[in-house]
């Protein structure tokens, strides 16, 4: 294991804000929303459906926050001069970049797993072992779109702008993408917008797995977003290397 990888992972794990927003908050939301909305449902089957849907939304919400929150660090590390300092050590730039991507990908897992556990043991969501596995695997793979987005924002924007952008992106992706409430509750124009957001398709991917199938459209849209954000990130990195001075 690369020493830099362990180093970066330890840094993020130390960040209480990160743990709170990406693991604790989605887990609490899962419990409360299921309690409030699910409680209004009469039938057990209906409650089951609502609980599963909320759990998937919160898995998506947590994973998006984790993917963005972990990768935005590129911007902070540039601003502090740390990336420039690393550039004058033998650590290859490709490794610095790859480690941030891998850390982003890996750190979506705690959100997915914790919310899934809360869904299973607190909300009482019942799925086959295979479906549980497929759900976590699908959402983990799908989170790559948001890792790519976070890397792009972290590379393109400076510390303050990037911090703000990540916050706004998180809220917009969740609110308009139907993670906090069903897209059907949004007014017409906003609903149209929702269907263009990767967060909507990310949740669709999860709901598809829960209902026993694969949402092909969701897979394609997320793959396209990953490729698009990734390509843009590479373009930006070429123009403005990691070690470039912030500002």
């Amino acid at each position: 294991m690369s020493p830099l990888f362990a180093f970066q992972l330890r840094r993020v794990a130390r960040n209480r804000q990160f743990v709170f927003f990406t693991v604790l908050l989605p887990a609490l939301f899962t419990v409360f929303l299921t309690e409030i909305i699910g409680g209004q449902m009469a039938g057990a089957a209906e409650r089951q459906d609502v609980a599963a849907s909320i759990m998937v939304s919160m898995m998506a919400y947590g994973a998006i926050g984790a993917a963005l929150g972990a990768t935005i660090r590129i911007s902070f590390d540039r601003a502090s001069g740390w990336l420039r300092q690393l550039r004058v050590t033998p650590v290859p730039q490709t490794e610095v970049f790859a480690v941030d991507v891998v850390v982003g990908v890996l750190l979506t897992l705690p959100s997915l797993l914790v919310v899934a556990l809360v869904g299973r043991f607190v909300s009482g969501v019942q799925l086959d072992p295979g479906t549980w596995l497929a759900l976590v695997a699908a959402l983990w793979a799908g989170s790559s779109a948001f890792v790519a987005l976070g890397i792009l924002v972290g590379l393109a924007l400076d510390e303050k702008a990037a911090g703000g952008a990540i916050g706004i992106l998180g809220v917009v992706l969740a609110a308009l993408g139907g993670l906090w409430w069903p897209v059907e509750m949004l007014p017409g124009a906003m609903r149209g917008l929702a269907y263009t957001l990767p967060s909507y398709w990310y949740a669709e991917l999860g709901r598809g797995v829960v209902s026993g199938g694969w949402a092909i459209a969701a897979v394609l849209v997320l793959a396209a977003y990953t490729a698009g954000f990734g390509a843009l990130a590479v373009l930006v990195a070429r123009r403005r290397p990691l070690y470039a001075v912030a500002g």
């Binding site: 502090s80 001069g81 420039r84 050590t89």
Partner: peptide
């Protein structure tokens, strides 16, 4: 460097260890 810096959320010993191991 003039614009070099240190990472946040890390201890001095960890940063030094990381760089020492890279050489």
């Amino acid at each position: 460097l003039q614009h070099g810096g240190l990472p946040t959320e890390a201890r001095v010993g960890e940063v030094i260890d990381l760089v020492r191991r890279s050489f």
